[in-house]
Design a protein around this nucleic acid. Sequence first.
DNA 1: GGCAATTTTTAGGCTAAACCAACATTATAC
DNA 2: GTATAATGTTGGTTTAGCCTAAAAATTGCC
Lengths: 179, 179
Amino acid sequence: MTKTQELTESLEMYLKTIYLIELRKRAARVTDIAHDLGVIASSVTGALRTLSKRGLINYAPYDIITLTDEGMVVAKEIMQKYGAMRDFLIKVLGIDESAAEEEACHMEHRMSEVVFQRLLHFVKYYETCPVEKVRWNEELGYFCSREDLDCEHCVQQVRVGTHKKPGTKPSVGTKRSDN
Amino acid sequence: MTKTQELTESLEMYLKTIYLIELRKRAARVTDIAHDLGVIASSVTGALRTLSKRGLINYAPYDIITLTDEGMVVAKEIMQKYGAMRDFLIKVLGIDESAAEEEACHMEHRMSEVVFQRLLHFVKYYETCPVEKVRWNEELGYFCSREDLDCEHCVQQVRVGTHKKPGTKPSVGTKRSDN
DNA sequence: GGCAATTTTTAGGCTAAACCAACATTATAC
DNA sequence: GTATAATGTTGGTTTAGCCTAAAAATTGCC
């Protein structure tokens, strides 16, 4: 069983950070983690004790820090969920990269196993399938960009559906008060 | 400005609950809210004071509770984000309805305005466009179900891409340890 | 050995959310 | 119209999570 109990978002961040440091330099120190997360060392110690109690990291006072096998599994799960959400936001929804990363970081935490799998598959499908090419356009919203097809039909429908006058920008980032 | 400061997930739940009660019966009472949220009355009073201080509800001790105009806007925003995520999970990712609702409830809270708008558009596009019909299949993952097209090609690629032997079920809901 | 860097401990603070028990108010029933 | 029931509020406590600051402990290194 990988799922011990549910980590808080903060603990997930610690785990993620340790994972990334391990990739760079084999093991982490308190200072590294504190630096990356923007907290002071004593905050890290507290988190480490929790993670250690849950069997996710190898931790002994004053020693260097590594993930346990279980910790590695969990960390990878987190990274994968993050990656899946990030990719979806960027590749499918067309969200700006840095915004996507910021947001994926929060959404990932609440993502179930099933949704994660589906998202993964969906993005893969989306990139693989040679016919389906949906694109985002500020003017028109999403539309399929197949050259052999006249999409004016659906574009019209979408416009009508969202009460948008042709030529009006979609209200992205705008406050709405529609029903 | 609709965005006072950022509500906690808990406060969003209170707001949502009040909104839904208002729909049913014009105004809410402490007991109604407590009942719907599964907390005791005194917990509700505390939350109400916070929401009131933020100008989101009309609240006077011992009186009935309604949303202010601003509260209504915020509540609708929350409901819309919830709806967009719910629809996406169900209609696009093919997630089971009750699971989708459960999960949308958590994800909604972390959703930015932009992602909300994109999701909305995406689902709408997805339902409107007559050619794009992506479907989920336990066996194959996502695939386009256009009859005039042989999708074996992409199905194969997806299979290869996910290291899945043909005929093997995708590992949805299964613990992975892949990289 | 002793200084400097690192880490831990200790003690404390803050916020958010919930509960309980006691009290206050309002509604209802007779 | 008053007693009783239902509803709502208050204040005190608790739990949990996360953080800081200051001081003490440990380690590494010259």
